[in-house]
């Protein structure tokens, strides 16, 4: 039984779970479910789909916990699983033609916007409204989008992004810079 969860690191919890402690698993779920939801939302732009993918990520964690090795940080490992599942979902959607670039249209009905009830005032009054920013992120090419979400929304370190995306730190920095410039360009065009 995990009595005081705060004193355990993610890595200690996964090792406990590998030994059969299901409370450790639940603690990891509670620690990461919201972070992963926001991360996946950047890909699929639907809370329901994002939540399904997060559930699949945790199911994978449950069934493949033995695959985790200490060489990687747990956060890197779980984000990598989630990113792969999100990409698979996007590929499936593309194949099934649930939506396509031409169908997308960027209407609000296609694009679920989080409730603004708890949005800080300064972000609503910001030059760029949240929904335009989210739409602009959605329009980015996948490599730039992933790097940007991980760094600027999830606020992970360059090193963590590098491990998740499996590219060098130099390439991560370059992608983030180019992604930001592209985002800026898209927003500028949208605001015209």
């Amino acid at each position: 039984m995990i009595n005081n969860n705060k004193k355990y690191s993610d890595e200690e919890l996964i090792f406990q779970f590998q030994k059969g402690n299901e409370h450790a698993y639940l603690e990891l779920v509670n620690r990461y479910k919201d972070r992963l939801l926001n991360f996946i939302f950047g890909y699929v732009h639907s809370k329901e789909s994002a939540e399904d993918i997060v559930q699949d990520t945790f199911l994978k964690l449950y069934t493949s916990a033995d695959m985790y090795r200490e060489i990687a940080k747990f956060s890197t490992w779980i984000f990598t699983i989630a990113a792969n599942l999100a990409k698979t979902e996007l590929r499936k959607r593309k194949r099934r033609k649930i939506f396509s670039i031409t169908d997308m249209g960027f209407d609000d009905k296609d694009y679920e916007i989080p409730s603004e009830s708890n949005v800080p005032e300064n972000s609503i009054n910001s030059k760029y409204q949240m929904k335009y920013i989210l739409k602009a992120i959605y329009k980015l090419d996948e490599p730039f989008k992933t790097a940007l979400i991980l760094r600027d929304i999830q606020e992970l370190s360059y090193e963590e992004v590098s491990n998740i995306v499996d590219i060098s730190i130099g390439t991560v920095k370059s992608r983030i810079n180019r992604g930001r410039l592209k985002l800026q360009k898209i927003l500028k065009n949208e605001n015209k």
Binding site: L37, V54, P114, E116, N122, S123, S126, M130, I133, D152
Partner: peptide, 10 residues
């Protein structure tokens, strides 16, 4: 704005 994006909750 990116940093202040509202966070979704499960």
């Amino acid at each position: 704005s990116l940093h202040k994006l509202p966070k979704l909750q499960t």
